[in-house]
C-alpha cells in the first residue's frame, strides 16, 4: 500500500492525543538522534530514583509509633542482618532474628507492620490502615502491634505462632514500580505457624490512597475476610472461593 493512503486529514493537530490517553506506557517520547531527549531521560531517571529510594530508605520506628499514639507497639527484626542480605536471602526475611522473645498475647488477632520492599509505603499508609482496621474489629481481642524490620510476609507466621494468635494480618510494603513506590499490601493468615504457604493466605493489594485502594475500603475487605476465616476456620483459596466479599 501507499504510505499516504491513511492520510485523510482528520487526525487533528496531535494524532497521538487519543492514543496517549489510552495507556500509561511511555509512548511517542521523541528522539535525540537514536536516544531519548534529555527531558524524557530525566523523567525516567526520576521515577527510577524514587522507586530505588523507597526500597532502600530504612524503616523509621519513631515515625510509625508517632502516627499511632496510645497503641502498644512491639518491635522485632528478621534474621536478615541488613538490606543487602534481605534482598538476596528471602528465606532469612521469613524467620525471626535469633533470640527474639515474644510473650503469648492471649489474643485472637495480631497486626504485623512489615517494611517489606517499601518502607516508604509503611511510613505513608500503615497508620491510616491500622486505624481504619481497628475500628472494624469489635468482637476480636487484638494483640499489641508488631513492627518488623527486614521482613517478608511469612515472618507473620512465626510471630503469630509465638504470640499464640488465631489469625495474623501482615501489612507489608510492596515492590515499588516506576509509578507506584508507596503501595501497601495486606495478607491475612488463619492459624499462623511456620510452614504456611501462599495459597493459605488472602491478599488485598495496592493500598495507596488517593491513587490506589483507600484505607476504609481496604479495612472493610480485610474485616470481612477475617469474619469469613473465623467461620471457615481457614484462610486462603478456600475462603476466597466461599466468601462473598464486598469490594
Amino acid at each position: 500500500m501507499s504510505v499516504h493512503e491513511g492520510q485523510d486529514g482528520h487526525s487533528g493537530p496531535d494524532p497521538w492525543a487519543a492514543l496517549r490517553s489510552a495507556t500509561r506506557a511511555r509512548v511517542a517520547l521523541g528522539r535525540a538522534g537514536d536516544a531519548l531527549p534529555t527531558s524524557r531521560e530525566l523523567e525516567f531517571r526520576a521515577a527510577h530514583a524514587v522507586a530505588r529510594d523507597a526500597v532502600h530508605a530504612p524503616l523509621d520506628p519513631v515515625r510509625v509509633r508517632a502516627a499511632l499514639p496510645g497503641l502498644e507497639v512491639l518491635e522485632v527484626r528478621s534474621a536478615a542482618a541488613d538490606r543487602a542480605e534481605y534482598l538476596q536471602r528471602p528465606d532469612l526475611g521469613r524467620r525471626l532474628a535469633e533470640g527474639t522473645a515474644l510473650p503469648s498475647a492471649g489474643a485472637d488477632l495480631g497486626i504485623v507492620i512489615a517494611d517489606g520492599l517499601s518502607p516508604r509505603a509503611v511510613h505513608e499508609h500503615a497508620a491510616g490502615l491500622v486505624t481504619a482496621l481497628l475500628a472494624r474489629l469489635a468482637g476480636w481481642s487484638v494483640a499489641p502491634l508488631v513492627l518488623a524490620h527486614q521482613a517478608r510476609v511469612a515472618l507473620g507466621d512465626e510471630i503469630g505462632a509465638a504470640l499464640g494468635l488465631r489469625a495474623v494480618v501482615v501489612l507489608v510494603g510492596e515492590r515499588p514500580g516506576l509509578s507506584s513506590a508507596d503501595s501497601l499490601g495486606v495478607y491475612l493468615t488463619w492459624d499462623p505457624r511456620p510452614g504456611r504457604v501462599d495459597a493459605e493466605r488472602n491478599c488485598v493489594s495496592n493500598v495507596r490512597p488517593p491513587h490506589g485502594l483507600g484505607y476504609e475500603q481496604a479495612a472493610s475487605t480485610v474485616a470481612a475476610l477475617l469474619a469469613g476465616a473465623r467461620e471457615l476456620g481457614a484462610s486462603g483459596v478456600a475462603l476466597k472461593d466461599e466468601a462473598a466479599l464486598p469490594g
Binding site: 495507556t23 500509561r24 506506557a25 511511555r26 509512548v27 517520547l29 528522539r31 538522534g33 537514536d34 536516544a35 531519548l36 524524557r40 525516567f44 521515577a47 527510577h48 515492590r175 514500580g177 516506576l178 509509578s179
Partner: peptide, 25 residues
C-alpha cells in the same frame, strides 16, 4: 523492547525502542 523502557503491566524495566536503534547504530 517496550515503550520508554517501562513495562506498565509487568512492572519491570526492559530496553526501550530507542535503545534498539542505538545498538544497531
Amino acid at each position: 523492547a517496550v515503550p520508554g523502557s517501562d513495562d506498565v503491566m509487568l512492572h519491570y524495566q526492559s530496553l526501550s525502542f530507542s535503545d534498539v536503534l542505538t545498538a544497531r547504530q
